[in-house]
Design a protein around this nucleic acid. Structure first.
Lengths: 197, 197
DNA sequence: AACTCTTGCTTGACATACTAAACAAATACA
DNA sequence: TGTATTTGTTTAGTATGTCAAGCAAGAGTT
């Protein structure tokens, strides 16, 4: 019923996750210490924006600050960053190598959800990757067969994914997202009534 | 470099996606027509909040409005809703049945990312589900073997998931998220300097 | 020393998405 | 018919996360 509100309750927002990664990345050449400008450049946001974000990260004790205004991850921040990196690696590996989602999309998708999946999901996914890559010929053969499998859906009735309706069809271009969503013919002002009267 | 900004460029926010689903759900008994209150109740938000959201959905032509203030999805809104439903079904099926992520978590995770995954990813995932559920004994056997597989990581060196570092370890409780994140001892005011001076 | 550039921070603004409170219109019931 | 409740909307406020613009301190150059 209210599961959907869990989204707001995330410990980590997309923005916070990527700020942590950027701090780690920017600092890696200087013993972990980074400057606001470096972080901003990496994220392609303004220094002001980073400055505000750092205030929040500092209060959450995810970063440490120098007397020279240098910034680095706290041990806790580092754990979180490592966690996000691990999730993304597993996700991207799965999308790219198992599902064979084309490269740029695999990168985008894993980047979008890296901070959202639970430890449970990430771990099981990692175990699946380990299982599939274990070198067992039978496993390898099955994966090969999957990759050779036809991409078309022929028999919606015998399909284990669909029930009364073909779910794969609902994912198709005609069905929203990029297909119908994007060319939204310039919507009018937010409150047409008000501009009218 | 700036892949992370794709997150903001989503056609569908989590909130919009769930408002569309709620409208469809609330209206299903009345020929698709729903009332603001019904939608609000389903989402556990205020009527005011729904009212504002509907204004935006109306301008994006995702809903239609009655002279009696009844609301329903437009054909476009319906396509998008169906799309989200399909993505979630595929995702949850994968998490619950293949990965065997415990039920509530599978529900939460699929709810969080249903609107974020690309058509590419959703389709390939659906194809994987179809392949795994095709009834082929060899495939079935491999899935069975995966489910019986030990959950521990013993040999980080031969592990196909990890490189120099065990990624699965980075996902473990000690490493952030629920482990270190949540019991954040009441952070001080946002700007300690200011309250101090 | 004077000038310029870079840097970090602050401010005001915007967009999203929520709340609570107040209100008017519609509905329900007595 | 009159009162009470429900309903939809609006407004002001909160929180996050961004931008642009401006300011002040430090660094580099001449």
């Amino acid at each position: 019923m209210e599961t959907w509100k869990e989204f707001e309750a995330n410990e980590l927002t997309h923005s916070v996750a990527h700020h942590l990664l950027a701090i780690q990345d920017a600092g890696c050449r200087y013993g972990g210490w980074a400057r606001v400008s470096d972080i901003a450049r990496r994220l392609a946001v303004t220094r002001g924006s980073v400055s505000i974000m750092l205030r929040s990260l500092r209060n959450r004790q995810l970063i440490l600050t120098d007397e020279h205004r240098m910034v680095r991850l706290s041990p806790r921040g580092e754990r979180i960053a490592q966690n996000v990196i691990a999730k993304k690696a597993v996700l991207k590996g799965f999308l790219a190598d198992v599902l064979r989602v084309p490269e740029p999309q695999a990168e985008i998708d894993s980047c979008k959800i890296e901070h959202l999946i639970s430890r449970d999901t990430a771990e099981r996914l990692a175990q699946l990757m380990r299982f599939l890559g274990s070198g067992d010929p039978a496993v390898h053969d099955i994966v090969e067969r999957f990759h050779r499998t036809s991409r078309e859906c022929r028999d919606a009735n015998s399909c284990p994914v669909c029930t009364d309706r073909c779910l794969i069809e609902d994912l198709a271009p005609g069905a929203a997202e990029n297909g119908g969503e994007q060319e939204s013919e310039a919507p009018p002002a937010e409150s047409p009534e008000e501009t009218e009267g």
